[in-house]
């Protein structure tokens, strides 16, 4: 048996490595934008302490699904969400849920790095401050420096924490946004094409970071790069035309997908 073929069979990072618990559970989730039925009856389990990749052609509903998890769709007037979406067993649509708290527990990193026009320090300190996570100045410093370290950015910016976040390179800005997201100690981090504007080196750093972060967080990433999904995730879900077509262990999805539509998409056969 050659190594290459064996690799195809065994997931290099089995989900069993994670604790096996589902952090986020979606049941029969439907999303409408006005008349447009953007997501149809989605059932998806997202395991804790693992990276789950959402893939699929443009417009298939990946971002829409991500936005369900932290109720970002609430901000779109035409959007309507039905079904259950649980985090740790609790429906995020429960009227008792505090949306601000929810979004603190579910951080988000966007396609284009979007640092605030403030200092590097303030970019990271912002969340902990509004959530009252630091009792004093040294607490805050600890949080900011710790978050920058975990985002793999500290060494590059430690001498200029007072400079504007927007003065950083694209890759550094994205890591700053990740530092900002993890500063409030979320449980779940959502990443919507976080590397699409980055060069291969910056991309590699973010990917490595994801692998480290997953020991403490649950990560969901949307990506158009099949190779990235194959590299960073333990589970992969393929969406097409608002339908969750197939989900499974990443190694299997990319070597032997079950559904023809998945196969066509990941091999580049959709016209």
């Amino acid at each position: 048996m050659t190594a290459a073929v064996q690799l195809a069979q065994n997931d290099p990072q089995p989900v069993a490595e994670a604790n096996g618990r589902s952090k986020v559970i979606a049941r029969d989730v439907n999303v409408y934008y006005g008349d447009k039925h953007a997501l149809r009856n989605v059932d998806l389990d997202i395991p804790e302490n693992a990276v789950t990749a959402l893939i699929g052609p443009s417009g298939c509903g990946k971002t829409t699904f991500l936005r369900c998890i932290n109720r970002m769709n609430d901000t779109i007037p035409t959007a309507r969400v039905t079904g259950r979406l649980e985090i740790d067993g609790r429906d995020v649509h429960d009227p008792e849920i505090d949306v601000v708290q929810l979004r603190a527990r579910v951080g988000m990193v966007f396609q284009k790095p979007n640092p605030f026009p403030k200092s590097i320090f303030e970019n990271v300190a912002y969340g902990p401050r509004i959530h009252g996570l630091a009792r004093n100045k040294s607490d805050m410093e600890e949080i900011v420096i710790g978050s920058l370290r975990r985002a793999g950015l500290y060494e590059e910016v430690k001498d200029r924490l007072g400079e504007s976040g927007t003065a950083l390179s694209g890759g550094q800005q994205q890591r700053l946004c990740i530092a900002r997201a993890i500063a409030v100690s979320p449980d779940v981090i959502l990443m919507d094409e976080p590397c699409s504007a980055l060069d291969p080196i910056a991309t590699a750093k973010i990917e490595e970071l994801m692998d480290e972060l997953r020991t403490n967080f649950t990560i969901v990433i949307v990506t158009h790069s099949m190779q990235q999904a194959a590299r960073v995730s333990q589970r992969t879900a393929f969406f097409h035309l608002g339908i969750l077509v197939e989900q499974g262990v990443t190694g299997e999805i990319f070597t032997a997908p079950k559904d023809q539509r998945t196969q066509d998409y990941i091999t580049g056969r959709f016209g």
Partner: peptide, 12 residues
């Protein structure tokens, strides 16, 4: 091409 799925299996 960084082949995937059936393509990867074909090539291997």
């Amino acid at each position: 091409r960084q082949p995937m799925a059936v393509d990867l299996r074909e090539i291997v």
